[in-house]
Design a binder for these strands. Structure first.
Lengths: 207, 207
DNA sequence: AATATTTTCTAACTAACGTTCGATGGAAAT
DNA sequence: ATTTCCATCGAACGTTAGTTAGAAAATATT
């Protein structure tokens, strides 16, 4: 019904169910949070029986792990790749602009995984916050180097602390998952105004 | 301990326990999220038995309600009062600066209630998101009027959409509950840089 | 067509949840 | 000293959570 046109020759239907379980889990996590997401509801959304989940995953935690990791990875790779695709001599301002756009686009257009990895991360047991921690750290480093590099090159004011600038900026972007409404504005418009404010501030240009 | 100086004559020890239960709930909610916060753990932290909670609250939901509402109210009133305390002729820039400072101060210094009302709101059942919704709406209106008024007075660039500016700004501030570390910097320093960035942007002042 | 393998279902188990309620201790009032 | 009322305890209830295991169905292999 919703399989790709070329069904895998040898016995891998399992992948399809596994994907549906993850999709259902990501959607439920995003909407109802960790506390109200039960295996039975996930199974219902995925169209199978609760017990059947255990053929694909060893535990509920393993599902959470998979969803969270996939979310962070999607954002991380989107930003990293969009930066890597730029010509080597791209000015720092442009690189920041691209990174902001890629981050927001991945967050808001790329399904439930990314939103969930932002919204749900703070409320899951520490035990499997740690599983995706290396990726999260790598992502922070990516931004930190981008901003610190820009500052060293003179593209960002020298009197700002990039260790404050970075979380303030990323917080502003991350929080969009709580309020952004696709029916109101395109993502690009949010990104454009965010970059505009970041660069020039909100005060009118004066004498 | 935290009562008014005139202890109630007749039998009001109940208030103390009630406060301890709320404190415990707020702390647990902040650290472990809604899903992993159980009545038995709250009772344990509060130093009483699980069943005893029901002498003070009718249900778990009532506790959540109380914690959430108290959190939003603290932030709302802190910002509202700090604005009301300003002289009537205070320029818009200064008013925004004060509001940002009050919001951050309430969020980061005022205990677990405010942080929880930010972090946990998105993951509780809609049924009692609605209880604190009026207050939340009022707070949004407060900011919206502050910013729109400033823009009308020419203190904010006319080409910015305050309906995008507001959530971007508040998101940046709200996200601090995820990363701010009191042992690193005072809150005022974060507030100062946030306002600086908001007003002037991060680009160097050029010719 | 028969067999072997992969996937799902059904039904149950245990633990923990929110909640209830009668018994119990201690402080205030008589 | 006795009574009254407030606050807590302790043990239990019904429900639902995550999880398990053997039977059954679906699919692939020969």
């Amino acid at each position: 019904m919703n399989e790709p046109d070329v069904p895998p020759r040898r016995g891998r239907k399992s992948e399809i169910s596994r994907g549906q379980i993850l999709d259902a889990a990501a959607r439920m996590l995003r909407r109802q949070g960790y506390g109200n997401t039960t295996l039975r509801k996930i199974a219902e959304v995925a169209g199978i029986q609760a017990g059947s989940i255990y053929y694909h995953f060893a535990s509920k935690d393993e599902i959470m792990d998979a969803v969270l990791e996939r979310g962070v990875r999607a954002v991380y790779e989107a930003v990293r790749d969009s930066l890597a695709a730029l010509p080597p001599d791209t000015p720092d301002r442009r690189r920041i602009e691209v990174a902001v756009g890629a981050h927001l686009e991945a967050l808001l257009s790329h399904g439930d995984y990314t939103s969930t990895s932002i919204r749900t991360y703070g409320e899951v047991p520490m035990a499997f916050q740690q599983k995706s921690q290396p990726l999260r750290d790598a992502y922070v480093v990516l931004w930190q180097e981008l901003l610190a590099g820009a500052q060293a090159a003179g593209a960002i004011r020298a009197d700002l602390d990039t260790h404050v600038l970075r979380p303030l900026l990323l917080g502003s972007l991350n929080w969009t998952v709580e309020w952004y409404d696709p029916s109101q504005r395109p993502v690009a418009e949010i990104a454009a105004q965010a970059v505009d404010m970041l660069f020039h501030g909100v005060l009118p240009t004066e004498a």
